[in-house]
Design a protein around this nucleic acid. Structure first.
Lengths: 169, 169
DNA sequence: GTGGATGCAAAGACTTTGCAGCATC
DNA sequence: GATGCTGCAAAGTCTTTGCATCCAC
């Protein structure tokens, strides 16, 4: 029989601990607003922008100013809990970073759905390309724009070409 | 001896013809400003933003309003002569599309250099991933951020981590 | 009690748009 | 000569910042 280990805290809590540690290290304070934002972000599950988050909190009765939302998102990005991405939008998109998980994106140009995927062979191919160029990779972002299976056949092919050329990654 | 063919016009001219055709098709007019912008864009050779282009033209004596620069870049994007990209910047970056050429980017986080590359095996791997997901790819963008060979060893490792987390693709 | 945090509103950066006069087709 | 184009300035959108007040430590 293996000896009992101390119970492993759930992931949520790990991010909370991490954020609190980050705040302490930088002599910053844990405020109610920061707590509320962290928990909203961790519970979101997909991509969001600053304003959507701001409005969602307002609807839940948590009135936090837009400025604080931006300031706190910036902190969360700095300590690695949140990733900032544009995904072809004008405004910044954010997403909670699931620990140890990196992924790339398929983005449907019809319904806007974002499909996340991870392929080890894609990662290693990129590493090989970097090695060939004597380039030290630190981060990457791959976005494939197209039409998802559910939208096939429902798309007006005519304005698709125009929209492809308008993509702004 | 093979028979002589009609001389192949240089690439520059092909883009001009394409733009003029686009304008005609859409009942738009070929103005001096549009001509100047097209030629400036084709002669640029790397990435630029709207304001840099605007200022470069002003220095050459071509005073074209910022509004027209934006409006014309939009047309050039629509007809496929120019690609719009962010490359991790706040403001939109543009680049002339060399015909038949697609490439991805290695971006040096120290000196800002952008290295373009193309790998057929990377393209086909992406196609395979899309096929598996029943996703029809139309466009993609891969940006790898890191340190170029010239900057290796010259970088302050400390603030690098912070800068990696700040990347906004 | 002190230093950092918040909210507000103002400022900023980048881009788009309305309109009167102008140029191309 | 009609229709679309330009420049200008104003408005828009998203984000950041200055400052007085407030609160976690």
């Amino acid at each position: 029989m293996t000896p009992r280990l101390a119970p492993v805290p759930p992931d949520r809590s790990a991010d909370q601990v991490r954020f609190e540690g980050f705040l302490r290290t930088h002599q910053l304070k844990l405020t109610g607003e920061r707590r509320a934002l962290l928990s909203a972000v961790l519970g979101w599950g997909s991509h969001f922008d600053a304003d959507t988050l701001h409005m969602a909190l307002k609807q839940k009765g948590e009135t936090i100013s837009r400025a604080t939302v931006y300031r706190t998102l910036d902190l969360l990005v700095q300590c690695g809990i949140v990733r900032k991405d544009s995904l072809g939008h004008q405004q910044a998109q954010y997403e909670a970073v699931k620990p140890g998980e990196h992924h790339d994106h398929l983005i449907c140009m019809n319904c806007g759905k974002v499909i996340e995927f991870f392929r080890e062979d894609l990662e290693s191919l990129q590493d090989a390309i970097c090695a060939q160029q004597k380039f030290k990779p630190l981060h990457h972002s791959l976005q494939i724009f197209g039409i998802c299976s559910a939208c096939k056949g429902k798309v007006d092919e005519k304005d698709l070409a125009a929209r492809v050329s308008q993509i702004h990654t």
